[in-house]
Design a protein around this nucleic acid. Structure first.
Lengths: 360, 360
DNA sequence: TTGAAAGCGATACCAC
DNA sequence: GTGGTATCGCTTTCAA
């Protein structure tokens, strides 16, 4: 066990040539190598505890069965890690492994991370971000099949397929849930527009209200921030000292931390959730939404699904063009960059309920 | 740009041999290659946009300047990502890159993750966990210099250095903060003992009370769980319907989510924080502790520092034995496995204050 | 000062 | 059916 065994060691022990070893261990033995030799080779490999040196294999084959994942800060931040989990599961199921490099949001490191990965002969690349966002893909990413998860390149010529959540629909279905519960005065709390997630969710919200024939009051859409304190202050503005008929009966928050702030405010004001006011979150943040008191009704981001879909697409592309990557063949079949929308999932828990009597 | 340039291309363009290229580009040009050739080589490399094929280099050198990081679920869970950030920063500063593989808490994948990394010729290995925990290091990890971050192997023969937070001291200093504010009746809320973090923090808490000559009431140590709802119910037990003189004036939570639950309960009961009861968190969870209402006083886990310390130690070991790793030389200088304790950091915010008048 | 040649470990073609 | 050999891209030693 001192130094790892090589194919040559196996060959010697089995009394055959290196080529025979290679053929047998790669499943191409039948019809090429005598059955008897095959057995001896396998035995030798087993006793020597032989595994091929992956470096040598990739050097030779110019392909590594490794998918490189570049993350803007998925690894180091608390969010969206399940995108990577979903991607990794799919990759593993097809005999690929993933390695991740995190740039900690430093765009200057994009190119070099990709270069490092490319130098290691990754077969494909995936770029993952925390939160939906547009970006310019690092140019060298185009050298191998690539995919974007939770982000997209809005320059049409980029041509890198993207997998993102269907935020508009998510916003719409959140509102529809509340509408079905009889709410007619629904506020929406979100952060800034730095991420397109905010305007898209709001858009869906508006769509739903409009479809229900309800007016969209501008003062019911509040963009305050993304954290607990923002939710708290936003809710105070909406609820504190406001007479009951003027109070919204439900508040949709663009993430679960905002919702925590809103609940905190409601508690402070002596308002029952969901008795007096229904509160929805968004994201279904792990260890947050489900354990809140009350447990948060929320719109779950399809993180694992997104990662899985992105990786599936990437591997499909990989197997389609087994030999050489042609960056020229830019246009997708549908004549543009492919953008896959994955639907969010409504999770009903305890923080939403019927509108208070008389307000429906 | 179609196919990557190789050293041979550079040599041809510069009109020299491949060896010359190698020498010059690796800084060993002076004294071996004519100054003039050196210039031509560098120019050629630049125009061809040449970077050495990392795979070939590692095959040749049997070393890659890559550190493999195995994570139990740091990547995919929301916690402790900054350990990796800290480690990566140090590695990068010394010309190493890190690649991460996450096992999603599936111990069966430990060995294979390490094997994959080893097959790629990583020069060193780091194992990182979410939350302090004991483990059995994968055996094959001993083949290269390795280090544990946020975890430890309690079998003395393992001999892998570990970097972990000083939880006992953290628990002690949390209590001391409250003691200094005049609190005399302090409760402690934690989760189960599945992670040694709980008993260690409690130990520190007891130590501090004992040192202050205060009794440690068993009913003031409550182990309920790690999530918001656990904090809520624990707090209700402590505070609901309890007459003021019998109520603890401060509650230390073993993480920030528990603290959220406690604040929620206090709000519900009409108790002011910190006016009626002071509440401390632990971890300084990103985007949670600082933005709570009120902002949480907490004991910050030194995640970045731990990652940095672990990586520094690993790289030091790597440069100490540049040639061959000898797994035999097991004993550390101090005669046992080295365990580095990194102190936690008290962060005072708004959720703690002086004990209520008459209760100090 | 320069270049030829020998590996690093594995694969695949091609004679035998 | 089998094994020799070129090759992947680079580093390093050794002659010239």
């Amino acid at each position: 066990m001192n130094r790892k065994a090589t194919a040559l060691d196996v060959a010697k022990l089995a009394g055959v040539s290196r080529s025979a070893v290679s053929l047998v261990l790669n499943g191409r033995g039948d019809g090429n190598v005598a059955k008897e030799s095959q057995v001896r080779i396998r035995e030798a490999a087993a006793t020597l505890n032989y595994t091929p040196n992956a470096i040598a294999v990739s050097l030779r084959n110019r392909r590594s069965r490794i998918i490189g994942i570049v993350s803007d800060q998925v690894v180091t931040s608390p969010f969206d890690g399940n995108i990577i989990a979903g991607a990794d599961a799919v990759a593993r199921s097809q005999g690929f492994v993933t390695v991740v490099m995190d740039t900690e949001l430093d765009e200057a490191r994009d190119e070099s991370a990709v270069a490092t990965l490319l130098d290691r002969q990754v077969d494909g690349l995936m770029y993952v971000t925390v939160g939906l966002r547009p970006l310019h893909v690092p140019l060298n990413m185009l050298r191998v099949p690539s995919v974007l998860a939770n982000c997209f390149d809005d320059r049409p010529e980029a041509g890198v397929p993207a997998v993102i959540p269907d935020e508009v629909r998510g916003g719409r279905e959140a509102a529809e849930h509340l509408l079905e519960l009889g709410h007619r005065d629904i506020a929406f709390l979100a952060g800034d527009n730095l991420t397109p997630a905010a305007p898209r969710r709001i858009q869906g919200h508006r769509d739903a209200l409009a479809a229900a024939g309800l007016p969209v009051r501008p003062d019911r859409i509040i963009q305050v921030g993304w954290d607990i304190d923002a939710g708290f202050h936003g809710a105070m503005k909406l609820l504190d000292g406001v007479a009951e008929p003027e109070r919204p009966t439900a508040i949709v928050c663009a993430n679960d931390r905002l919702a925590i702030g809103v609940v905190l405010a409601a508690n402070r004001l002596g308002l029952a959730v969901p008795g007096d006011v229904s509160i929805m979150g968004y994201d279904d943040e792990f260890r947050i939404a489900a354990t809140m008191v009350p447990a948060l009704t929320t719109m779950a981001l399809p993180l694992r699904e997104m990662g899985a879909a992105a990786m599936s697409g990437l591997l499909r592309e990989l197997s389609d063009e087994p030999e050489e990557h042609e960056p020229e063949r830019e246009q997708e079949d549908d004549g543009g960059r492919a953008e896959t929308l994955v639907p969010c999932r409504l999770v009903v828990r305890e923080s939403t309920g019927p509108a208070p009597a008389g307000r429906a």
